[in-house]
Design a protein around this nucleic acid. Structure first.
Length: 602
RNA sequence: GGGGGUGUAGCUCAGUCGGUUAGAGCGCUGGCCUGUCACGCCAGAGGUCGCGGGUUCGAGUCCCGUCACUCCCGCCA
């Protein structure tokens, strides 16, 4: 007989009655009746009830075993009497009579209970992650993550992509987020950087003649965390294709994403391929966001002209100074009480806006604060632009374009929830395309790349030479699902001459471009295929599929918001000898005691 | 870097207007219990009320500072 098990804790059924079996697992729960003891034995696969009574010489010993101890049980599988069957358990028709019990690993008193559904604070959960991972919810999430990644790999491989590995110790990338740096022992004063993404390597693989690349790629960015953004490190399904147009990239990845969401989405509806494509400018106009949630049915409109020079003086004055007016429809809101409108107005003020103007269409007339300031023609224009009519309301945001778009976008989301309009049980995908290639930094006034400096500008060299940089679009796109940005990607700029020109517009001279992007720039001088790709975030995909509000729930060993690993005690101080070897000296600001991180993990 | 929330037993939390000995559930320890499956019943141990300072006759409670965790803004090509 196997020393640990003949079956798993989820395996035994009526068929096994009469067999002598061996199970190993964790003591999930004990029910001690004094002269009769039940032990629920748990492993990765399930739960089996084991039973022993006072007649057994082992009885005392088993009674003393604490929950979460690991034991091996050998005994006879018996049928439960009809009144003691547990239908909630897959193994609920049988139980195992304990004849032999070995305690493989006794457990101390637990800092958090594994059985039950008591909620624990993040700190406890992260410090004792191995216990939290035993619990059903987290255990299921990590199993799901594994299955999703396996499915992604299979789908990518079947679509003709090859999986690669690229360096973890590499060079600092010149644009983008803050890098994690690793000091070099052999080259004092120099540092490796962990890759923010394998961006340049995948492009170099294209220049190396491989046709379709993919990788479950770790990415490292030293930026602050959010609920949907893990600090430090995360994973992307990174891929790149040679001789590909934007449509080719979309055609390649859409079935992979739609397929995975259908496979693991618990029957929720998934946008059928091809996914809708919305130009960036339209997204900002209609949804006030570059990652619109299409479960929200509200579509905004520009109504600046309705108010220009009109009798609503506040708006008219601002429009003269360059402001725009965005209208957000609120279907059936005419029936809402006054407090509904007041509450939204209060919210707008709390958000730093002057307020939220609105008009209510009811009983054939226009009511509300600005209803009387509008003429019949203007009201008609508003109704037409927003698709509203009697019984509906329309809210207005008036501000400079960027500000108006952003705030109207948030008001749109707010209204959707207040009116209970968000579509449930669905994954709504779309591509946001035609991103601007450049934007003006409002603080410095300088023109900068608005997204990825490696994207091909639409119109190529001619556009760069003849157009206002702020008008130029790039072959740059994001894929968005339910308001979550899953990925951005681009058709890359593979032409050294166009690269030089594109970087010149962003203020890099030729020498600087050659120096900072040397590897890639050099490769493109010796024959590079046109290519493009994208990199959906895996943690976020799993988070959506697991229906979790926080990305830490789908990562086995996440860091906390301060980018600390409470279980392992990272980051940690190092021996002075190691610092000397690296020729580093630590200079701390004033007196700050290093926080005791790992005292629970000694 | 900035803003909000939280911090009381091992854990999850309650604690009124500032007033006697700071409570509950789970867990833990001991006792009883042979059909439970969140077993039940009885008893017990367990507290730097995050930390420091202040106001007050008196502070878990009010004020100031600080630390930790968390959510958000900035940041994240």
């Amino acid at each position: 007989m196997h020393p640990y098990r003949t079956h798993t804790c989820g395996a035994l059924r009526l068929d096994h009655v009469g067999a002598t079996v061996r199970l190993s697992g964790w003591v999930h729960r004990k029910r001690d009746h004094g002269n009769l003891l039940f032990v629920d034995l748990r492993d990765h696969f399930g739960l089996t009830q084991c039973v022993i009574d006072a007649a057994s010489p082992l009885f005392e010993a088993v009674t003393d075993v604490r929950p979460e101890s690991v034991i091996t049980v050998t005994g006879l599988v018996v049928r439960r009497t009809p009144d003691t069957v547990n239908p909630a358990l897959a193994t609920g028709e049988i139980e195992v009579r304990m004849a032999e019990v070995v305690v493989d690993s006794p457990a101390d008193v637990l800092p958090m209970q594994v059985a039950g559904d008591l909620e624990y604070g993040e700190e406890t959960r992260l410090r004792y992650r191995f216990l939290d991972l035993r619990r059903d919810r987290l255990h299921r999430n990590i199993v799901l993550r594994s299955a999703v990644i396996a499915s992604l790999r299979r789908r990518m491989t079947e679509a003709g992509f090859m999986e690669f590995q690229t360096p973890i110790l590499t060079a600092s990338s010149p644009e983008g987020a803050r890098d994690y740096l690793v000091p070099s022992r052999q080259h004092p004063g120099r540092f490796y950087a962990l890759p923010q993404a394998p961006q340049q390597f995948k492009q170099l693989l294209m220049a190396s003649g491989f046709d379709r690349y993919f990788q479950i790629a770790p990415c490292f960015r030293d930026e602050d965390a959010r609920a949907d953004r893990s600090p430090g490190e995360f994973y992307q399904l990174d891929f790149e294709m040679a001789f590909a147009t934007q449509d080719d990239v979309f055609d390649a990845i859409e079935p992979v994403l739609a397929g995975v969401f259908e496979e693991f989405g618990n029957g929720k509806a998934v946008t059928p391929v091809p996914f809708p494509r919305i130009p960036y400018d339209d997204a900002m106009l209609k949804y006030g966001s570059d990652k619109p949630d299409l479960r929200n049915p509200l579509v905004m409109a520009d109504v600046t002209e309705v108010f220009r020079g009109g009798s609503f003086a506040l708006f008219a004055r601002n429009i003269d100074k360059g402001a725009v007016v965005r209208a957000i429809p609120a279907p059936k809101a005419a029936a809402m009480p006054r407090s509904f409108f007041d509450k939204l107005n209060d919210w707008a003020r709390a958000e730093g806006a002057g307020g939220l103007a609105y008009v209510v269409f009811a009983d054939g007339e226009a009511k509300g604060p600005i209803g009387k300031n509008l003429e019949a023609g203007g009201l008609d224009a508003i109704r037409t632009a927003t698709g509203t009519g009697d019984g509906d309301a329309v809210f207005f945001v008036c501000a400079r374009k960027a500000e108006a778009e952003k705030f109207a976008g948030r008001a749109r989301e707010r209204l959707c929830d207040e009116l209970g309009l968000r579509e449930a049980d669905t994954f709504r995908f779309l591509w946001v395309v035609d991103y601007p290639a450049y934007e003006r930094n409002p603080e410095t006034g300088r023109i900068e790349f608005s997204h990825n400096p490696f994207s091909m500008p639409q119109g190529g060299m001619e556009a760069l030479e003849t157009m206002d940089p702020l008008e130029i679009k790039a072959f740059q796109y994001d894929i968005v699902c339910n308001g979550v940005e899953l990925s951005s990607g681009a058709i890359r700029n593979h032409r050294p001459d166009i690269m030089l020109k594109a970087f010149a517009i962003a203020g890099y001279d030729e020498a600087e471009t050659r120096q900072r992007f040397g590897g890639l720039f050099n490769a493109f001088r010796y024959g590079a295929p046109p290519h493009g790709g994208c990199a959906p975030g895996i943690d976020r995909i799993v988070m959506m599929l697991a229906d979790e509000p926080n990305i830490r729930e789908v990562i086995a060993f996440p860091m906390n918001q301060q980018a600390q690993d409470l279980m392992m005690g990272a980051p940690a101080e190092v021996e002075p000898a190691r610092l000397r070897e690296l020729r580093l000296r630590v200079e701390l600001p004033r007196e700050k005691k290093p926080t005791a991180l790992a005292d629970g993990a000694e």
